[in-house]
């Protein structure tokens, strides 16, 4: 059993350094610190529980075996996210039996995205739902996005990576990240509109 260190709170960089020097506890603490966010990420990308669990485990095993290659002047968490995204996409491709699932831009037929439903949500529209129900609404909305938009949205607005970190993690240009994020956000807004529009009951 790997238990977190309790003496004082070390930042990721210090823990990585200790782990590289042979500390099992330090690596265990890095896992404990990030496992739930990585699991959320693998769940949202794969949209499959079993694949998400496998991708989670693979991510940390790979991070462990590649630790010596990790450049200590970069962000451990961003590096971890990059591994997790790759593991998740591999699972997604396998599951779909389709090597074409990629982060390439989906075909765009329209010039841009035109919002169809616009309605006022009032303040704190999410509070009309119980937490479990809200989570389900949000999960369903994210899962309905095409993979290239979904991954950008997860990294930017759920994992809260910067635009540059997201671009780096996904091997995309900053402008590609920005344009996908705009479309992802607008599509999600549209999907949530029917749940949150003022005066409307959920359906």
């Amino acid at each position: 059993m790997i238990e977190p260190q309790s003496a004082r709170i070390l930042d990721d960089a210090e823990l990585v350094h200790q782990a590289k020097e042979g500390s099992v506890e330090a690596f265990g603490e890095l896992v404990n610190r990030h496992d739930r966010k990585i699991f959320r990420l693998t769940q949202h990308i794969t949209r499959n529980r079993e694949d998400a669990e496998d991708a989670l485990q693979e991510t940390f095993l790979k991070a462990y075996s590649r630790l010596s290659q990790f450049a200590e002047n970069s962000q451990f968490y961003t590096w971890l996210v990059r591994i997790a995204v790759n593991e998740s996409l591999m699972k997604l491709r396998k599951r779909k039996g389709d090597a074409s699932v990629s982060l390439d831009d989906p075909m765009e037929t329209e010039e841009g995205f035109v919002p169809r439903e616009i309605g006022d949500w009032g303040n704190n529209p999410e509070q009309q739902y119980a937490q479990q129900e809200l989570h389900e609404i949000l999960d369903r909305a994210v899962h309905s996005l095409p993979a290239p938009f979904r991954t950008v949205f997860i990294l930017r607005d759920m994992e809260q990576l910067s635009t540059e970190e997201t671009a780096e993690a996904l091997n995309l240009s900053v402008s590609a990240v920005k344009s996908r994020l705009l479309r992802a956000r607008l599509q999600l807004r549209e999907k949530l509109n029917r749940h949150f529009q003022r005066g409307k009951l959920s359906c």
């Binding site: 790997i2 739930r36 669990e53 940390f60 529209p125 999410e126 809200l134 607005d157 759920m158 999600l188």
Partner: peptide, 25 residues
Amino acid sequence: TIQIFRGTEPYPLPEGLHDKLQEAL
């Protein structure tokens, strides 16, 4: 929309999964 997503915290790992991960490591 963004605020609502940013406000959600990830769930802790289910017990069984946490143990499985620790064991594999």
